[in-house]
Structures are given as structure tokens and as C-alpha cells.
């Protein structure tokens, strides 16, 4: 079984810091990591390969330094890796990104299954998987937390939903987006990692022309959506002491929570 895994290099948002004076994001010193969900996709792919044979190919789009996540993927057991890198790809929305990735996949050509992380921690959009599946016109299953069986004809998976899960059979070829419940990703093996860094590197870079796209179809120019502005939400704490009887302060607090921009506000 030949599997393509889509991986992305992202800033590590778990250690994100805001400038206490301006409230802006401090980008300096933010380390780049492989998107956490993608680690689970890679683990799943390598496991399937170990059971059924075939090969695992990692594919990423990003600047040249994104090669590091592909090296990591090879350390984890990917056999080949491809980086789609071109100035023309920058500023892409999910439409342009999914188009670029699907053209990269078409250039790789032979695959049975595509795996990717459910969402990336920098954008949290969860759009790339389904959009790539639609460009390629193949079946999709999102929120996958278990892979029960896989063969040339179909793959049976469990999908985590709000109130439980469903078991779904997908015709092959298929694209799955996976969540962290699926497995525990392995660490890269030093031997594979070091090999990926050697003079005769096994990682290939393709630019826009290599995958046969026009620069107006990709990147910012090929995007349908555009960022108008970005801002940092005001996280200043008011340090307000609520006054009144127990009953009054509690109802005051609940009112404030209801008006807050939190996801539980509507449930109160």
C-alpha cells in the first residue's frame, strides 16, 4: 500500500508569548515544529506500511526550512519526501494551498491512501484535508480515531463525533484526517534521521513549474480569501471585585460569563 502523508511546519503555539506592553505576538524564538496532528498521521501510515508493505511518502508545502519536518518524517519511517517550495506559493489561503498540494500529489501519481492531521495548530481550519480530497475526487473521512482494517478496495475507520463515534467504510483511494486519539507517534530513529540529512539527500523540492501550476493560480494571487487585518484580542484583566450578597455576586458572575467570548457562554 502506497501512502502519502501531508505534513506542515508550524510555529509551536503552545509556548506562545504576548508582548506585555503591546499585546502583540512575540514571534522571535518561536520554534518550528511538525504540526502535532500530522505526527499521528505519519505514525498511522508507517504502521500500515509495516503490516502491508509498500511505501510512505511525506509531502509538504512551505519555505525551504520546512525541509526539517520532512527530515523528521523520514526519521519516523517515510521512504520518500517532497517539498513544494516557491515564492509564488506564499500567502496562500486553504483553496490555493489545497490546489498546490493536490498538484504535488498528482505529480507523485501512485498512491492508495492519503493521510493528514485533522488540523494545524497555527490556523486550526481543518480545511486542507477535505479540500484536497475534493480536488482529487476521492472519498474522505475526517476526525479518524481508529483504523480498523485496510485493503486495496476499502478502509474501515472510526470517526470521533460530538456525542460518540461512527464506523465508516470508505472506498479506496481515500483521504483520512486523523486526531491525536488515533495512536502514540514514535520518535524518529537516529539512523533514518541521519540518512535523511546526508549529502545525497532523499528529499526532493518542486517549484511551481515542476508541478505544472501557473503562479496566478497559487499563493496569494490564487487565493479566494484575504486577510483584511489581524489584531490581538484584549486580554487585559480588570481585577474587578464583585460586590453584594452571595446571591448577587454569583448572578453577576454568571452574567459576565454569558457575555464573555468563550465557547461555554451559550451553555450557561
Amino acid at each position: 500500500m502506497d501512502i502519502i502523508v501531508l505534513v506542515k511546519q508550524v510555529p509551536n503555539t503552545t509556548n506562545i508569548k504576548l508582548d506585555p506592553k503591546t499585546g502583540n505576538l512575540i514571534r522571535e524564538g518561536l520554534e518550528s515544529i511538525m504540526n502535532p496532528d500530522d505526527l499521528h498521521a505519519l505514525e498511522a501510515a508507517v504502521k500500515i506500511k509495516e503490516e502491508t508493505g509498500g511505501k510512505v511518502m511525506a509531502l509538504s508545502m512551505g519555505p525551504p526550512q520546512a525541509v526539517d519536518v520532512l527530515t523528521q518524517a523520514m526519521g519516523m519511517g517515510a521512504d520518500k519526501a517532497f517539498l513544494l517550495s516557491d515564492r509564488a506559493f506564499s500567502g496562500a489561503d486553504t483553496w490555493a494551498t489545497s490546489y498546490t498540494l493536490s498538484k504535488g500529489i498528482e505529480k507523485i501519481k501512485d498512491y492508495d491512501l492519503i493521510l493528514c492531521g485533522h488540523q494545524a495548530i497555527d490556523g486550526d481550519t481543518a480545511q486542507i484535508g477535505p479540500q484536497v480530497a475534493d480536488w482529487l475526487d476521492i472519498a474522505q473521512a475526517t476526525y479518524v480515531n481508529d483504523i480498523e482494517s485496510v485493503d486495496e478496495k476499502q478502509i474501515v475507520v472510526k470517526r470521533r463525533l460530538e456525542h460518540g463515534f461512527e464506523r465508516v467504510a470508505c472506498k479506496m483511494p481515500a483521504l483520512l484526517t486523523v486526531i491525536s486519539e488515533l495512536n502514540e507517534p514514535r520518535y524518529p530513529h537516529m539512523g533514518q534521521l541521519i540518512s535523511a540529512c546526508e549529502q545525497k539527500s532523499p528529499i526532493t523540492v518542486w517549484n511551481a513549474a515542476d508541478i505544472g501550476v501557473k503562479t496566478i493560480e497559487v499563493g496569494l494571487e490564487g487565493s479566494n480569501t484575504h486577510v483584511i487585518k489581524t489584531f490581538t484580542p484584549n486580554f487585559k484583566r480588570q481585577n474587578e471585585l464583585l460586590k453584594g450578597s452571595n446571591k448577587e455576586v454569583v448572578s453577576d458572575l454568571i452574567d459576565r460569563l454569558k457575555k464573555s467570548d468563550t465557547t461555554i457562554a451559550y451553555r450557561l
Partner: peptide, 13 residues
């Protein structure tokens, strides 16, 4: 072809 720096990758891993 493109490659990473082995020292950085080992340290990072």
C-alpha cells in the same frame, strides 16, 4: 534535492 542539518535535527529530536 534539499537536506536538513544533521546536528540540528539530532538536537531537536
Amino acid at each position: 534535492k534539499i537536506r536538513s542539518n544533521a546536528e540540528d535535527m539530532v538536537r531537536f529530536t
